[in-house]
Lab assay of single mutants.
Amino acid sequence: MGQARALMGLSAQLDEELDFREGDVITIIGVPEPGWFEGELEGRRGIFPEGFVELLGPL
């Protein structure tokens, strides 16, 4: 779908969440519900709030 750069780090609180560090580039693979993305980073998949990232182009 597209890519996004992390504006800040996120520590996953639930198993389905993706954790990442500020500056990581995450591949967006879905939008499971409004306000959330599903992404992949370094072979890991999970969901995260859209406010933690900036899109690097259209989805």
Rank of each mutant, 00 (worst) to 15 (best):
E50P: 02
L56G: 05
I26L: 08
Q3L: 11
L55R: 05
L14T: 15
G43L: 02
E33F: 10
E22Q: 12
M1W: 09
G9N: 15
F48H: 00
G51K: 15
M8K: 15
P34I: 05
E42A: 12
A4L: 01
V53P: 00
F52P: 03
W36P: 05
F52E: 07
R44S: 07
D15V: 09
R21H: 10
Q13Y: 07
E17I: 11
L18Q: 07
L59V: 12
L7T: 14
P49F: 04
E50N: 04
S11Y: 13
E17S: 12
S11R: 08
L14N: 15
E54D: 09
F48G: 03
G51N: 15
R45V: 10
E33D: 06
G30S: 11
A4Y: 04
D24L: 02
L41T: 02
G43I: 01
G43Y: 04
L10P: 08
F48S: 03
G2E: 04
P49W: 02
L14S: 15
G2D: 07
A4T: 02
A4P: 04
P58Q: 09
W36G: 04
F48Q: 09
E50I: 08
F20R: 04
L59A: 08
L59E: 11
G30C: 02
I26N: 00
G9D: 15
A6R: 01
F52V: 10
R44W: 00
A4R: 07
A6V: 06
E50A: 15
V25Y: 08
G23Y: 03
E22I: 11
P49G: 05
G35R: 03
D19S: 15
L7P: 02
V31W: 00
V25A: 07
P34V: 11
E16K: 12
W36K: 11
W36I: 15
G23R: 02
A6P: 03
E40G: 05
E38L: 15
R45F: 06
L10W: 15
G2M: 08
R5H: 04
E38T: 12
E16N: 13
L14P: 10
A4M: 01
S11H: 11
P34A: 12
T27D: 14
G51A: 15
L41E: 01
P34H: 09
L56V: 10
L41M: 04
G39H: 00
G46T: 00
L56T: 08
L18G: 02
V25F: 07
Q13I: 09
D24T: 06
I47T: 10
M1C: 09
I26Q: 02
E22W: 03
L59Q: 14
G51L: 10
P32K: 11
F52R: 08
Q3C: 10
L10G: 08
L18V: 01
D24P: 02
F37M: 08
M1E: 09
F52C: 14
L59S: 11
G46S: 03
Q13D: 12
E42D: 15
I29F: 07
F52T: 14
E50T: 10
L18F: 08
A4N: 05
R5T: 07
D15E: 11
F20E: 07
I26T: 04
Q13T: 13
E54K: 10
M8V: 14
G46E: 00
L18Y: 04
V53A: 03
D24V: 01
T27C: 05
G2N: 15
D24C: 07
I28G: 01
L7R: 13
I29D: 07
I47F: 11
G35S: 04
M1I: 14
R44P: 00
A12Y: 00
F37I: 07
V25I: 14
G43M: 01
W36H: 09
G39R: 01
E16Q: 12
A12V: 06
R45Y: 06
I29A: 08
E38A: 10
E50D: 11
P32F: 04
E42G: 12
Q13E: 15
E17A: 09
R21P: 05
R21F: 06
E40I: 13
D19N: 12
G23P: 03
L7F: 01
F20L: 05
E38D: 06
E33C: 14
E17C: 13
E54G: 03
D15Y: 08
G23C: 04
R44A: 07
E17K: 07
L18T: 00
P32S: 05
P34S: 10
R45P: 00
R21M: 13
Q3N: 08
F52M: 14
L59K: 11
I29R: 10
G57Q: 14
D19G: 13
F48T: 05
G51R: 15
P32Y: 05
G51Q: 07
A4Q: 05
G23S: 05
G39C: 04
A6N: 02
F37E: 01
L56E: 04
L10C: 14
P32N: 00
E54W: 09
E54F: 01
L10D: 06
I28H: 05
F48A: 09
V25Q: 06
F20D: 05
Q13K: 14
